[in-house]
Design a binder for these strands. Structure first.
Lengths: 331, 331
DNA sequence: CTGAAAGCGCTAACAC
DNA sequence: GTGTTAGCGCTTTCAG
């Protein structure tokens, strides 16, 4: 591998001159510059980015840490973060937290490979996060409530979302409402469930444990949970799925059992993913302001990077998307 | 920022001892190790990953370069690449090629920030790719036909796909078939179009330029192109959209104009994205083997990294997904 | 403008 | 086991 030293030698100039020429510094003559550039291309020289970062000791990169690189649901959010980063001349790189202890994510968090991070990965522990956040490495966390020095939260009010969804069902006259849950380790799931409980309680309704099933936030899980509910015999009049994916799985299960949504049973989801308005019936759901959340997270990270004071936590609202999967209960 | 030097000093040991202790080398005594670890945590020491990479001169990382980090359509593909990387103990990091000349992607390509790359980003030029590929940095390209030393292709046979889609329409009796095109700079779009042309020609049908519109591979573009086609007055009996996104936009346009798909006009898409089976009518489309392609790309990259000989190009087949958006032409 | 030289933080011989 | 030391490849003073 050719180094800048080789380039300098071949071009017959000093090391520093080569460096200047390669970086387009104005103080090197055009002639010298060409000579250097030529030497470089002749040697197939490639700059070593790490050496540069090491020297400059800042990376102009922010890391976006996701549970799973392939999760398609955060597209708007990523987009908006990316816009902010780009506008500030920073790179955004995404890494997965799969692989636990020695995942790429943890490497980025622990080893100063970026100037800051935005985290949306429930499998990264609070401790790791708190340990890694510092003035030199601010972190914005979007999937839990936790704060610490240089560690702030941007989240969507999931409790309110859960409450709103359930409340809506209740207002439509539903009295028996199931909750299909995500992983209990998920902060969002937990809060949605709390909101559900609050709405129930407020209306003097009781939660029936047989109507709290777990679907792990995935479509297949929603499908299976729903199947199970159907097999139990008695059906609630409405079901609140912890996210749209599970709701879509549920819709399929109902269809297979010839239970019509919304005529026999009402269904509400959570997230408002793209698919939601296309499924049949179009899914009534709670919309999260993903764009706003992403944008806010990006801006806040840069503010911290600039050394500005920022509030430790931000909470965004939600919106009910009324579509076709819920109708008034027939009492 | 505390360095390993500070840690060593505080622990009262030599630099190297600290390094060994921190890296869990067996030749350091348990007592010394604890001492070092304590010092480290006391100083809130964070290893500098770049310095390490610089020293070790390999990153155990492969870069996945995408046009747009937020594109939701490659989820299966990313997943399968990630599986392969993880199994080999490598990190996978995704970076966007947005931002052109000095995008993160180009930095990764040019600056040895990873051991190899998988590229799926039509806005990265062939030259850049050819220039960057080398024994020390193999590249697998998935969205164009280009080969070079240590640069191989994995692609899906788009020409065949375009042909198959069009041929299917023709067999259903359609004689006037529009093509809604993606960006002309896209290799895939180009090949799909060629396949379309070949099928037409084979059947002795002619392409009408007024029925070749551009939708830029995005939903909104498909919508607009379709609107335009409708305004032109005369409608073809079927339309082949260069991808599903555009087809979905088209479906919306037809619906707004009360043109029923498939009764008035047949529609076929390309990609078989998740949404495809949920839209109304369910979209007939060409399915790409994304999982297989991703997995293959990953394996090939590692083979190159291992110094094995590999073929310069691989082409995968496609599959027609018959759903509800195409019916036989009423002649 | 150019060149010599001092590190950035870390690892890994090598000697003790 | 532990300590000394020589760089990895680059940028950037500082003197010419």
């Amino acid at each position: 591998m050719a180094t800048i030293k080789d380039v300098a030698k071949l071009a017959g100039v000093a090391l520093s001159t080569a460096s200047y020429a390669l970086n387009g510094d104005s103080k090197v003559s055009a002639k010298t510059r060409t000579k250097v550039l030529e030497a470089a291309s002749q040697l197939n020289y490639r700059k070593n980015g790490f050496a540069m970062d090491l020297k400059r000791s800042r990376t102009k990169t922010i890391a976006l840490i996701l549970t799973d690189l392939s999760g398609p649901y955060y597209s708007e959010l990523i987009q908006s973060i990316q816009d902010v980063a780009l506008a500030r001349g920073y790179d955004l790189i995404a890494c997965s937290s799969m692989g636990g202890r020695d995942s790429t994510a943890v490497k980025f968090l622990r080893e100063n490979r970026a100037d800051g991070a935005i985290v949306l990965a429930y499998n990264i522990s609070n401790e790791t996060l708190q340990e890694c956040a510092s003035e030199r490495f601010p972190i914005v966390v979007m999937d839990r409530e936790i704060s610490s020095n240089c560690l702030i939260n941007v989240l969507v009010d999931s409790e309110l979302g859960g409450y709103t969804a359930t409340r809506y069902l209740i207002e439509k006259g539903h009295k028996t409402i199931a909750y299909i849950s995500g992983p209990t380790s998920s902060y969002d799931n937990q809060r949605r469930y709390e909101g559900y409980l609050r709405a129930l309680q407020e209306a003097g309704l009781e939660e029936k444990t047989k109507w709290r099933l777990s679907g792990n936030f995935v479509r297949e899980g929603g499908y299976r949970a729903t199947k199970m509910m159907i097999m139990q015999g008695e059906l609630p009049s409405a079901v609140f799925y912890g996210n749209d994916e599970m709701a879509i799985g549920g819709l399929k299960a109902f269809e297979e059992s010839q239970i019509s949504v919304p005529n026999h049973i009402s269904v509400i989801g959570y997230d408002d993913i793209q698919l939601a308005e296309y499924v049949n019936p179009a899914l009534t759901t709670i919309r999260q302001p993903k764009r706003e959340a992403g944008s806010l997270a990006g801006h806040l990270l840069f503010q911290m990077l600039d050394g500005d004071e920022v509030n430790p936590a931000y909470k965004l609202g939600i919106e009910l998307m009324e579509r076709k999967s819920v109708i008034a209960a027939k009492n």
